[in-house]
Structures are given as structure tokens and as C-alpha cells.
Simulated scan of single mutants.
Amino acid sequence: MEPTRLGERAIERMSYQGSNGTRDVRWDTEVRGFGVRIYPSGGKAYVLTYRNASNRKKLMTLGKVGELKLRAARDLARERLSDVRHGHDPLGDKQAMRREATFNELADQYLEYERVRGKRSLKDDRQRLRDHIRPVIGGRRLAEITHRDLLRMQTRIASATSNGTANRCTALARRMLNVAVEWGMLETSPAAKLKQLPESKPRDIFLSADELKAIVRSCDEDENLYAAALFKMAMLTGRRIGELKSLRWDQVDLDNGMLTIHETKVGEVQRVYLNEPAHKVLSSLPRVEGNPYVIVGRVPGQPLNAYRKCWDRIVKRAGLKPFPPHGLRHSFASQLVVGGTPLETVGELLGHKSPLTTRKYTHFRSQHLRQAANAFGELLEAETTLSDEPKAANADG
């Protein structure tokens, strides 16, 4: 077709007129080499054709129609043509970036991108990248990452933690690689066909006093001092494993019996008040020189990373059926609710931002309410004499 001055409405009316998948481009007369490509699927994209310094003809995509305004697409085309006149090859530079960029570089750009957008779960993303994803594929070039690499990463994370954690990391990696495609850093995402691992349905965890004591004894017998301290602190404070794992000594105030948690799920700084057993755990825990973290791992200067094997060992030694360490948090909340602690107070101790989140523990109140009802019945029996035989009715009324 002959070139014409492209307009927004004209582009909307365009439809694919090629044959057998041939390229269909409508060229613009205002900016030479600029046009709109229509795909057999009906999709449309702004494109630019040019010749590089070696006189090789190139066709690059500037952006999708609908995501990029026509005026902005023309301006971008002019910028790229200016680059060509100064000896650059825009498409070649993009392809070189694809070959050279590593996953760590993508991660840095992605975190900044989501920070500006105000993503609420950004702290979770940072933690998952730091503890699970970067150690496995961080140094790999994006163009070299394969589906098999991601499968190995998923399996490694699941073995060290749980299928749930592996699935959260998988979802994050998939999202990041999709963004890399949008940014032109990848042609296609190697995570496109990556499936989630099966997860067991969450169940209520209510550990009895004897079971809690068995876990404490098992922790005390374990060879991994810091992992054992992590689980005892989770049991005694009800805080999330991730929050405690990233805790630094400068966030611990033993004099006032308080922790300051910066990296919380709800994205706000929270205070944790230590009970006496929790205070003893932290007071007796050795500090490692050069490592700011309370729960240290094998890597110098870093917190504990893998803890699943240790947890499985502790639960087995305690003689309990397997359950995830997050169950310690559920048991903490359940015990408080059964003991009569108001749901609002329980929610504050757990760090819930919304009271609705704590309502899932409401069914544990039935035991507390039954105890209260029975207590009133016992009081009545103690204060009155109840005859087994009903008195005869007074005929006189």
C-alpha cells in the first residue's frame, strides 16, 4: 500500500490484509521509516525501519498500539533515527542488552520499577530474591536461563523450605521475566510453561501445652542453634518466620523487652513485646562478629537461609505429625483465643493490619465460651440447692 499520514482513527479501522502470515505494514509519510504493523491475530504495533552503519536494513518494534500513543510513537521514531545518524544501531543495541543482561540486573531494575509504583509486597519480593532466587540464577544471563534452570530452582527452594515458598518464588520469577519481555530484554519468557507445585490445604494448628514443651525440648537438643532459636521465637511471639529470620541485633532492645520489625508483610514498622521465655532465648543466643543478623546462617554476614530440614528433624524428634513452621504462629494465636484474649489484641500481637484477617481464629472462641458458660453453671450449683424432685404444684396458685 502507498504511504499515508497515519491517524489514530485510521489505525483503529485497519485490519490485516496480508496472506499466509506475510508482513503487513502501513507506512507513515510524516516520519520516514515509521509505520504500523498489523498482525494476522489483529494486534497492531508501531515499527521503525532503518539501515545501520553496515547498510543492513532493520525493522524494530517501538511499542504496541494502545499502550503507546501515535504522537509518542512518532517522537520515539525520530529519537531512534537520530541515534542511527550518530552511528548507533538501536535494534542491535537492544539485542546486545539481551545477550549481556543478567538476572541480578533485571532484579535491580524490577525492584526500582515496583518501588516507584508503590507495590505493597515489595519487601516480600526483596526477601524472596535475596534468600531464594538470586543465589540460584542471579548471575545467569537472561538469554541463557532455560525452563530447566527454573525447574531446578523451584525444586531446590521446595527442598529447603516448602512447596508454598517455592510457588511464591516461582510466581515472582515468572512476573519478572514477563516484564523483561515487555522491556525488550528477552524475546520470550522461559517461565511461560512453568507450573506451580502442589500445596497441602492449610489446616488449623492447635498444639497442646505438652506438644509445645516437646518442641522446645527438641529445639534444645538440635545441633543448629540458630534455627532452633528461630522456631522457639516463632512459637513464643507468633511472628512470621521471615520477619524473625531477617531480624538484626540493632532491632533488639533487651533492656525494654522489645523488637522493632521493619520488614513486615503489611509494609509498616511494628513493635513486638517479648515475654520472659522469648527474652531468655535472645539473651542466651551468641552474637557472631561481623554478622548483624540475630539468626545467622552459613554465609558470612547473612541470615539463615535453608531451615526446612532442621524443622523436619525437630518435629520428628518431638514425636509430632509433620506440619509447616508457620503452624507455630497459628498455634500461638489459637491458644490466646481459647484463653480468652480478645481478637483485637491477638491481631495486634500477630501484626495484622486488618481485624478481618484475625477473624479466621473466631471458631476457637467456642471453647472459651463453653468454659465461661460452664463456669457460670458451676457458680450457680455452688450457691443454690437444686432438688432432684420437682415440688408439688400449689393448687391455690
Rank of each mutant, 00 (worst) to 15 (best):
T345G: 03
L304P: 02
E348C: 07
R329I: 06
R313I: 08
K232G: 02
L225Y: 09
P303D: 08
L282Q: 02
F332N: 02
V315A: 04
R329D: 04
C310Y: 06
P303L: 07
G351H: 03
A228S: 15
D250E: 14
V337N: 00
E223A: 15
V296P: 01
V315F: 04
G242M: 11
V269P: 03
Q270D: 12
F332D: 02
V281I: 14
E263A: 13
E276V: 14
P300R: 13
V296E: 00
H326R: 11
E289T: 12
V296W: 01
E221D: 13
L230S: 02
G297M: 07
G301Q: 09
R308G: 15
L244P: 00
A227P: 03
Q302P: 05
V252F: 01
G267T: 10
L254E: 05
Y273R: 14
W311N: 00
V252A: 01
I314C: 00
S218N: 01
S334V: 10
F231T: 03
S354D: 15
M235V: 08
A227V: 12
Y273D: 10
L254Y: 05
G319T: 11
T358Y: 03
P303C: 09
L349S: 04
Q335M: 14
R298G: 13
R317N: 14
L285S: 04
S218A: 15
I241M: 12
S218T: 06
S354Q: 14
A229I: 07
D220L: 12
V252K: 00
G257A: 09
D250M: 08
Y226H: 15
S354V: 12
T260N: 11
A318C: 05
S354I: 12
L343T: 04
V346H: 01
R329C: 05
G242I: 11
R317V: 11
V294G: 00
V337W: 01
L349V: 09
H279Q: 12
H330C: 08
E221V: 10
S218V: 06
K353C: 08
E243F: 04
N256M: 11
T345K: 12
L259C: 06
T345A: 15
T341Y: 01
D253F: 09
C310D: 13
D253G: 07
L356T: 15
I241Y: 01
D253P: 03
L349M: 15
H279L: 15
K309D: 12
V338R: 13
V294L: 03
G347A: 14
Q302G: 08
R240V: 05
V346K: 00
V266H: 13
F332M: 07
L236D: 01
L274K: 02
V299E: 14
G238W: 04
D253K: 09
V299R: 15
L285V: 10
Y226Q: 08
R313A: 13
P286G: 07
P292V: 11
A229D: 04
Q251D: 12
L350H: 03
N256V: 06
V299A: 13
E263S: 10
E223Q: 13
G238I: 06
R240C: 02
E268V: 15
L244F: 02
S331W: 05
E276F: 12
N224P: 03
A234R: 01
P303R: 04
K316D: 11
T260E: 14
L236E: 01
P286H: 10
C219P: 00
V338E: 11
V346E: 01
V252R: 00
D222Y: 04
L282N: 02
A234G: 04
L244E: 02
P322S: 08
N275P: 02
P286E: 10
N224I: 08
Y226G: 01
